[in-house]
Amino acid sequence: MTQADHRFPLVRHVGLDGMLVTFSDQMTEPANRAALAFRGAVQAAGWSAVSETSTSLASAYLRFDPLRVPHSEIETRLRDLLGERNWYEASLPAGRRLWRVPTVYGTDLAPQLEDAAQAAGLSVEEAVNRLGQSRVRVLTIGFAPGQPYLGPLGAEFNIPRLKELTPMVPEGALVLAISQFVLFSGPTPTGWRHVGQTAFRCFRPEQDHAFPLNPGDEMLFESVSPAEFARIRRSATDGNGGAEVQEIPA
């Protein structure tokens, strides 16, 4: 699918009280940009009957009260808003943040780095250099509470999932497949390769804001030594795992 594919965007009904605007049938940077920007525009419009909005990799969803506004009117509003600009080239919403997260690549903390580097046709050193300098976007949050899908990574990292599950990786594991990272919010089995380990907590139920990340935020997983990582893990108590965070200018 390209943005010239005339099937998209699609506007569809979801259940009794939802609408879904889909910009692609696969994850691309322009489609994700469109979903994030369009959701931001819906929120900015302040439609009183809309109670919830969210995004997936390439779609924007809204939930509304059909007793206050009929489906036909919401659909008309959405189509009018779609016609206002080329959403695939729209600016991303304001309020985004950049997180610089200390990360150990490889070692016994992330034992599948070498396998991932080989699948990408790179040396381990070059893989670490490229991954550690890849500024990736929080494409969407899902599967587990607060858990981000991040990308896109370079085409060389469009590597398949493992054929067999790794029985368990820990909270803060950085895993890789199909030109994306996932940063795990809790211990879980996975078919993605465990290439890095962080002390970042994606789900913080004890805090007022349990999910620190928002779709559209950006992350850099900067390489640190195992000794520095051990120091960070001992001293970091706020859930950020030593991460530095800054606002991204609009």
Rank of each mutant, 00 (worst) to 15 (best):
V128S: 00
R7N: 15
W99M: 01
V21A: 07
R33A: 06
F184N: 07
P205Q: 03
H71G: 13
L176T: 11
P189C: 11
A31F: 04
Q197I: 12
S123L: 08
A41M: 02
L165Q: 13
P187K: 05
E73C: 05
A37T: 07
R79C: 08
E89Y: 10
V42A: 04
Q118A: 15
G242P: 04
P212D: 04
G151L: 10
N214C: 10
R96F: 01
F181I: 11
S91F: 08
F211R: 04
F229N: 02
P145R: 11
H71C: 07
A117I: 06
L174E: 05
Q112I: 02
P93R: 03
L139G: 03
P187M: 01
P167M: 02
L150W: 10
M168C: 07
G121V: 09
Y105V: 11
Q112Y: 01
V245I: 15
A210D: 06
A230I: 04
F221A: 08
S54W: 09
M1F: 08
G15A: 09
H13L: 14
A127S: 10
T55D: 04
G83C: 02
N240E: 11
G191N: 13
S24C: 12
E73D: 13
T28I: 06
F221C: 07
S91P: 09
R12N: 06
V101M: 00
